[in-house]
Design a protein around this nucleic acid. Structure first.
Lengths: 256, 256
DNA sequence: TAGTATTTGTACGTATGTATA
DNA sequence: TTATACATACGTACAAATACT
């Protein structure tokens, strides 16, 4: 070991083979949907054992870059990295940091108006209809907890539909991520009990829909900002005693 | 296969064991720094084979939740999920979407002022000194490309130092992520050739430092906004022909 | 419907490398 | 230096899933 020099320890073969596979994908011009060679061929191609190769494939799978299937025509298929594969690690990261409703709305108050304005004029009739449906769902008085919960989910779906049409992929990701945090927080807190919360949202969503139809960017920005400021007050009202980070780590069956 | 029901295919043992380990960590109240049982014990504890166990551990390692060491007192140690472990998957995600300088600055223009205001009054003398050093580094006329590059890195370090003190972990993450994208973009484009870019930055950074010393939140917000608007124009000037997404995927030795 | 071929998934045994005392 | 405790790497055998005939 050379003195005064970082003892650069040998990286694991299973990690090296991951880089090899990535390079192979690039040089072979492979696209999402394309199939990688089968395990036997990969083992020969990269000169490692089966177990090492499988650890490498598992690493690629965890990153969301491949998906494997058994049987004939099975094997490892290239995938587009999904939203979930990008969100989960960020959740894990935040699990080790303090994060509360104030932090979420500090971001939502500036990001949602920016996103909303960016989709003005980009919503076709079909999109506007879908958005209207999320509003209609919240108009009737909920008869039980199931319906109440469905209304809360629909309210967040309103915002996700806007994100679908946002041309800025990173802005869309962030807004969706915040929506997911809020949804899980509400599920955890049984926050859908709070009825007047929904009534306030309903009014803003209706006015926003009209502003989108009118393609009135100024109105959209103003309404969405008011909507977020209002939502934050409701967030505070419901006295969040449990921190957001509590629900991040276990990564259990929240999406059931 | 039941009719009218999703053919829920059996999940892999290596994925199930990951959930088992996560649960074990929670129930055993394990913290970052704590050691997991060794492979042999884990195999017995979870009733799977060695290869399955290793695939599961690899999955945890990729997620940044554990780190393994060889030798006596070696094994799997719990880790806090690092910034890099949260960033990499997001980069992979964005690789499959269009993202350009305009998108980055659309976010930076609203996030950096928000972050800057949030650290007003939270910077101690040591922090202010560090910030001042990044400015000093940019005051001398660079004598070669190395120094020129160092100045560009220092300019981004100015912003990262602010993020260090931001109480909102998610806002800090986002700003740092954008800084990293810009750094890699500049490295890729040899953009540190553009000298007047640096001169403009220097002025804003100096005025911002003074505003932080004065704890003048309004001035900080105004200056940072102007700074971002100005930086975006420089970004456009340098005619980014290559998209940001080109440099995301290979994930090579960028951090060398 | 059943059978067969293909391919991943799981298990196990052994050998090698590495860090600590 | 040697012993020890651990991860890392390899190879084989078999089980399970799935597409095609």
């Amino acid at each position: 070991m050379p003195i005064g020099q970082r003892a650069r320890k040998r990286p694991k073969l299973s990690d090296l083979v991951v880089e090899d596979v990535k390079r192979w994908i690039v040089t072979e011009r492979k696209q999402p949907g394309d199939r990688l060679p089968n395990e036997k061929e990969l083992v020969e191609l990269f000169g490692v054992s089966k177990s090492t190769m499988r650890e490498g494939l598992k690493a690629l799978e965890v990153r969301g870059l491949i998906k494997t299937r058994t049987g004939p025509a099975g094997g490892a298929y290239l995938q587009q990295v999904s939203l979930d594969h990008a969100s989960e690690p960020l959740r894990n990261f935040l699990h080790f940091h303090h994060l509360d409703g104030h932090h979420i709305y500090q971001l939502r108050k500036i990001l949602e108006p920016e996103l909303a304005v960016s989709v003005v004029g980009r919503l076709d009739a079909k999109q506007l209809d879908l958005i209207e449906q999320t509003i209609r769902l919240c108009e009737q008085e909920p008869r039980n907890d199931i319906e109440l919960r469905a209304q809360r989910v629909a309210e967040l779906e309103f915002h996700n539909l806007l994100a679908d049409k946002c041309p800025n992929a990173l802005l869309a990701f962030m807004c969706r991520f915040l929506n997911d945090l809020l949804r899980d927080l509400m599920v955890y807190k049984n926050a859908w009990e709070h009825r007047h919360f929904g009534e306030a949202n309903l009014g803003f969503h209706s006015k926003l829909l009209q502003a989108f139809r009118d393609e009135n960017a100024d109105a959209v920005h103003r309404l969405m900002t008011e909507h977020m400021v209002d939502a934050e007050t409701h967030m505070h009202e419901m006295e969040v005693h449990v921190g957001v980070q509590q629900l991040l780590m276990p990564a259990g069956r929240r999406h059931a």
